[in-house]
Design a protein around this nucleic acid. Sequence first.
DNA 1: ACCGACTGTCATGAG
DNA 2: TGCTCATGACAGTCG
Length: 761
Amino acid sequence: MLYLKKYFTEGLIQFTILLSLIGVRVDVDTYLNNQLPPLREIILGPSSAYTQTQFHNLRNTLDGYGIHPKSVDLDRFFTTRRLLNQVRQLDRLFVPSTELNTWLVHRDSDTVVSASSQSSPTITLDNGAGLEDVNNPDCVIFLVEPDIDLIDILWRQDIDLGAGREVFNYSNRQKENEEEKPSPQENKDRNEEQESWRNGVNLQGAPPVDGETGESIPEQVSLGTQTSLSLQECLRLLEATFPFGEETEFPAPVVSPEIAVSNEEVPSTSQGLPLVPQLPSAEPQLDLEQQWQDIMAIMELQAMEVNNTSLHTNSSSVSAISGTTESSTVGNFELSTRSTPINQDVSLHQASLPSCSQDFPQIFNPQLDSASIAPRTATLRPSSSNSTNINSTFGATNLTGIFLPPHVNSSSNNVTSTPVLPDPFSTLLEESMLDEISLLDLAMEEGFSQAQASQLEDELDSDSGLSLDSSHSPASPSSSETSCSSAASSSSTSATFSEEGAVGYSTDSEVATVETEEGAVGGYQPEYSKLCRMSYQDPSQFHTLPQLDSISHNHTYNLPLSSAFSEHPELPISVGKKTVRDKQNSKPQPPQDLLDKHSSRDERRARAMKIPFSNEKIINLPVEEFNELLAKHHLSEAQLALIRDIRRRGKNKMAAQNCRKRKLDTIIKLEQGVQDLRRDKARLLKEKMEFIRSIRQMKQKMQSLYQEVFTQLRDEEGRPYPPSEYSLQYSADGSVLIMPRSVTTAEQNRKPEKKQKDKKK
DNA sequence: ACCGACTGTCATGAG
DNA sequence: TGCTCATGACAGTCG
């Protein structure tokens, strides 16, 4: 577990990112995914909402077409993207197979631009299928694996229902736009866009609402008039991306009328390359997955920015590019598509995801000027100056700098008039990823407070969480020593005991085991002390052999003595307590008294019966030898009976001792098991806390990164996007969209409903 | 005198 | 069947 954890440490992530940025391939994801599957659940739990973002596809889609036209170092650009994609795989997140590409294409009202006619190699809208109407002002392209049938049906339904553009809240936005950027063409565009609204698509302004479903529709796409075919195509693509009325997590995206590009109708770049990669059907994605993809998308943005910085040293180059491409391309926030040559830096994806919207409630603002709509929505490119900043940031060895809190970044980034960006990641991660964290925290709080955690940590530091302070233990060596010493002192023939050999369980290893567990035994300590008293023969061992302090079983204690005496029947026989008292009262004792004192009843009986051999032999001899022994001597029935009783009792006594020791051993082992489990528990809890810590740190970094990226974004006029009005949102495929907050809010409101529906299911 | 722990012994059952 | 072992129960011993 611990070694798994390191892969998630902040240092590794940062280092990996750094390596990727400098062109070093780091392919850890495979190992993590294949070799360390438990890790996901360690952090995320069984229902891991983390999903790998399939950014690799994004890079494939770009294939050099997402880079700035003026950028010469395309190879470097793509290398960087590839590396970034690899870095993204470092996370254990599931990479959705679905890929969604959305283009927001903007055309100046004055100039009707067909993508194919664009001098810039960026977007070629001339592809046959739904792009013939390239002249339409604004166009958003959603590239998806379309569920065309469904989309078409929905579209037709909207038409039949008379759903107008009003339904999609276009006018509101239009009003706002008028003030900022009134243009003669605007009305025309507006009409065109309204036309698109009829299709159930709202591309701009406040959160549009699907006239039929009532679902809010992501806006930000400028709509233009276009042929029904192109419109349908666009809608199809859009719907395919965000199936309306389906159970997908994604809200129905609002598609601008102009251009819808799918792989089938793949718009190709001037080079003939498909503008949009065909995307697998969008599967419902977990919020967390989306969020993570969003995060990764942002990271990629930064990375791109870094690379672009080297290519574009000043904003003029960017603006020039945007100027040329502006008419045809609005969406420049290209992370995943190669089809956005216009503002190669970024492909703007229109998809708004419910989950994402929830995650970015405060980020999305529906304030889009009509004038700025097209440029803003379409062009999200970091200013060159900002790019420089980013570059410097990334260039810095200390990657942590990019993860500074929002306010910090905002202060540093003066270029963007954007005030402190709302923390998108706070919401981004909260919904799902942080939910798990919260659960962990909750679990931790409930069952494992910080104090407990520290305590457990201390326990972990120590070898044992048990209180092994034997000095305070009843079974401490002192007490044991006393009893044992007394026992040993009482036996004047300890040497004899030794030579008789241990019959029972008294082995050093066992003794050691018992000793180590002495403190853990707790309630059994008195018993141990007794055992000690019972077993010790040499008091000196208490001082020389600590591990033998407490217990040393020798269950043969009385046998040698008895045998010794038995073999000397002439010795006087004394009875039980009397001998003991005699010894206690008079220290100088006759040998007979000492012998009697240590004689067992059977020994005394044997002596009384004049048994010619020792009890030890009687007890320990094998049956055959025992029988031979009996045969050698002519014994009376009484003697034979006594001998057999002695043998029986002697064996039973040893058996009883062994049995009791086994009991104790079992108890000790159980106690050890309990302690081991406690230690494991403490260790696991400690690891869990560390993981939670790491996740939080990552979250903070992501937030900072988000804001960093956001502050770098500029519309086509070079103005920053006000964070109060716009926010970045991430689609399932990892593409990044800049969307008005109103959309997000609407989506957010809609999300709970979906959740309820899910619960009902 | 009482109590608890330890120990030995017996009875019993299993191998 | 006898022997050995394990174990519960009981009682004696001891502190």
